[in-house]
Write a protein that binds this DNA or RNA. Structure first.
Lengths: 224, 224
DNA sequence: GCAAAAGTGTTAGGTCTACACCCATGT
DNA sequence: ACATGGGTGTAGACCTAACACTTTTGC
């Protein structure tokens, strides 16, 4: 059998800071779409798994190390790359603010964070991929505890609330949200406070992953 | 760039009859796994889309024409095929009972339906693919109206109820289920009855796809 | 007239939503 | 003392889950 399809991976990486969700994009060095912005990604090597390919490409192109990674969708339209047939397995990933800064090795001209409401024009079918990733993030954050992957290990409750508001694009009721989230029984309240300059200092919380998995195994589901 | 990865598609096709869910499997003609059962599938041609590849392979191998098709997941473990690196995009599909019979052209020895509780040993990582497909079917049937793709166009309400019971693997309350399902406002009750030999004849229903899409656009969601 | 499947309501408990005031700190 | 953000409770509406008898047909 003769087949000349090439296989690539692409990764939509989301970060959260200053109450907005951002996506990591790179500027293309070569044609097609030279100079245009694109989702990081590249061809899969013969010996590596798809996830390894994503992690390798992310490290090479942006210097970041991902925190959470899941497969999104495979894009296989024969016309999606103007030159060759390239089928791409898209992933979506989340990183914590502490890993948010791009590696010094990366030329700031080449990799940048973009707020999801202020996106540049994208290469290939990457706008479509990104749109799907955002939809998935919005859906998933309501039934799996992935929001914590976007926050530091210890966080004030208001950060979590603002994150949900940013992702879902709507206001949320502070009291009801807190009640429901704490009722899920997967957050540990620490004996530590943090002050944001003015206002009453906030208690810090941590996501208890073990407790979450235990509850999940018992059939108790996370849902906001 | 040198890359010798091959790309294939595989399709987990579900059917529903006699109150059980079945999967369509084929017997492999060649090594590896010669004589073993496998999910239908094959290599993607350079010029066709992934969906076209699935439909072509299904027609070639089993003679059936699918009713509903959606991408499931892409399996890319380097070890999944003992001979070459083959990355496979798995799909999951549903067919109506009227299309349930395998084409006469197909040797019954080569393609067969298996009740999902009585599966034979499978080739490659197909057991894993099938397991994922079942999980997806169970999840999806509760929040998208895909169950109707497994029934004839006109069906008695009890068929729908038994389908849900079969897919979810548990009993469902007849009264509550009917209330909720009819309350979604996507079923049309016909002026037609059907009798199953003994017992009171049942009214027939139809899924109203247009109404469903209209409601969906208005933000009203299907949920059981 | 009896066996078999279809059709139909009510109640109690739990969950969701809407909503406003006090608390702890910095300036 | 005032500005800022953190922390908390309740009542009404709504939804869910549990539960059993009557109706229509074939035999």
């Amino acid at each position: 059998m003769q087949q000349s399809i090439k296989l690539s991976v692409d990764a939509v990486v989301f970060g959260y800071e200053s109450e907005t969700i951002s996506v990591l994009l790179i500027r293309r060095k070569y044609d097609p779409f030279k100079g245009k912005w694109a989702i990081p990604g590249g061809f899969v090597l013969d010996s590596e798994s798809l996830e390894e390919a994503v992690e390798r490409e992310l490290k090479e192109e942006t210097g970041i190390k991902i925190n959470y990674l899941e497969q999104l969708y495979t894009f296989g339209n024969p016309e999606r790359d103007p030159r060759n047939r390239v089928v791409s397995v898209a992933y979506f990933g989340l990183i914590k603010p502490s890993a948010f800064k791009l590696a010094a090795s990366t030329d700031a001209e080449e990799a940048q964070w973009f707020t999801i409401n202020k996106l540049p024009e994208l290469s290939f079918d990457h706008a479509e991929i990104l749109k799907l990733a955002i939809t998935r993030l919005q859906a998933k954050i309501t039934y799996e505890p992935i929001g914590f992957e976007l926050l530091d290990t210890k966080f004030p409750f208001s950060d979590l609330e603002k994150l949900y508001a940013a992702v879902l694009g709507r206001e949320i009721d502070r009291r009801n949200f807190r009640k429901k989230m704490l009722g899920l029984n997967v957050l540990d309240e620490l004996d530590e406070k943090v002050s944001k300059g003015s206002g009453r200092p906030a208690n810090l919380f941590m996501f208890n992953k073990n407790r979450y998995f235990k509850l999940k195994k018992e059939g108790i589901i996370f849902e906001i």
